[in-house]
Nucleic acid binder design. Structure first.
Length: 315
DNA sequence: AATGCGTGGGC
DNA sequence: TGCCCAAGCAT
């Protein structure tokens, strides 16, 4: 949960998770849909799918016990060098430095490293392997991460009161914020998407996204990119026909929301749509006709919830 | 090595 | 408001 996600954001999800699913056996007994619903809203859903796979693997191959050896734990899906070192040091007291984005920044400043090249990252690792408190490796790692998160901030290094300032090169130079250099991000493209809330009686249609795609395993309304300059409702009608073979009547526009993903942004316009009879639809994947009251049973992306909010389908 | 992958908070 | 950034990992 903590990968690329702030602690304060994770805490409520973590608590909710433990309340409904307190141990690995419990995770293994649930299906992926229930697990994704626990994760819903946290983002980076491959973390959730990987965790689920890892739990299955631990139950099947390790007798339900989390491996206490680096090599076996590191091999689990979704576990990289950082996560492996964090768990090994905190849970099993192994003297391995857990190097996250905070620690790279703090150490770059302490050592006066401008560029986080692979060579310099390796220097940081070697230095921490010497410095780590072998009696309390977990505390050492967490302390260093906390210094990064609370004191040695990316654009706001508060050297006054920092326990490392006496031997920090970047602080001595007076320009700690300039360490390490950061590359500017490329601008992300913007797309226009139109979607339909397709009603049949008191149910509407949802489709499940493929596991390997972005937002994999989550559910959504049938939708498509707006490509031409024609009227959105005309475009929506042809999307419905071409993608799932439904001939729909376009109704009122529910609304339009803006949503920013990590690598693109979109305006998401959703219209009520209606069908007279339950036609057979040619779906590429799983689909359901659900009532608004069933929304909490399925994981939906944030953009879809923004539409639910407009409809006051409160969850 | 560079890119894809969500969402929310801070300023 | 529009960026930057967050207890990274997989490919």
């Amino acid at each position: 949960m903590l990968q690329q996600t702030q602690v304060d954001t994770v805490i409520p999800y973590y608590n909710r998770w433990l309340e409904s699913c307190p141990d690995l056996q419990c995770v293994a007994e649930k299906n992926i849909q229930e697990i994704l619903t626990l994760w819903e809203g946290l983002g980076y859903y491959s973390r959730c799918r990987n965790f689920y796979s890892a739990v299955k693997e631990v139950v099947k191959n390790h007798g339900g016990n989390v491996p206490s050896e680096w090599k076996q734990f590191r091999a689990l899906p979704g576990v990289g060098d950082y996560t492996a070192a964090a768990v090994m040091s905190i849970a099993f007291h192994k003297p391995l430095p857990a190097i996250d984005g905070n620690v790279y920044r703090v150490m770059a400043r302490v050592l006066g490293i401008k560029h986080l090249t692979p060579y310099n990252k390796n220097r940081i690792k070697n230095r921490l392997e010497k410095w780590i408190d072998t009696d309390h490796p977990g505390d050492f790692n967490q302390a260093l991460m906390d210094i990064g998160a609370r004191i040695c901030r990316p654009n706001k290094a508060n050297c006054i009161g920092c326990p490392l300032s006496d031997f920090c090169k970047a602080s001595a130079l007076g320009t700690p914020n300039q360490y390490p250099t950061r590359k500017k991000k490329k601008p992300i493209p913007h797309i226009k998407v139109v979607a339909g809330l397709v009603w049949f009686k008191d149910t509407f249609l949802i489709l499940q996204r493929p596991n390997t795609a972005m937002l994999g395993g989550l559910w959504e309304f049938p939708s498509g990119k707006i490509t031409s300059a024609s009227h959105p409702s005309k475009e929506l009608q042809s999307i419905m026909k071409n993608e799932i073979g439904l001939t729909v009547t376009i109704g009122e526009e529910i609304g339009s929301v803006h949503h920013v993903y990590s690598h693109f942004s979109m305006t998401f316009s959703v219209f009520h749509c209606f069908i007279e009879h339950k036609e057979s639809l040619q779906s590429h994947g799983p689909f359901r006709w659900i009532k608004p009251s069933e929304i909490p049973c399925y994981p939906f992306p944030k953009a879809n919830h923004k539409i639910f909010d407009l409809l006051e389908f409160s969850k």
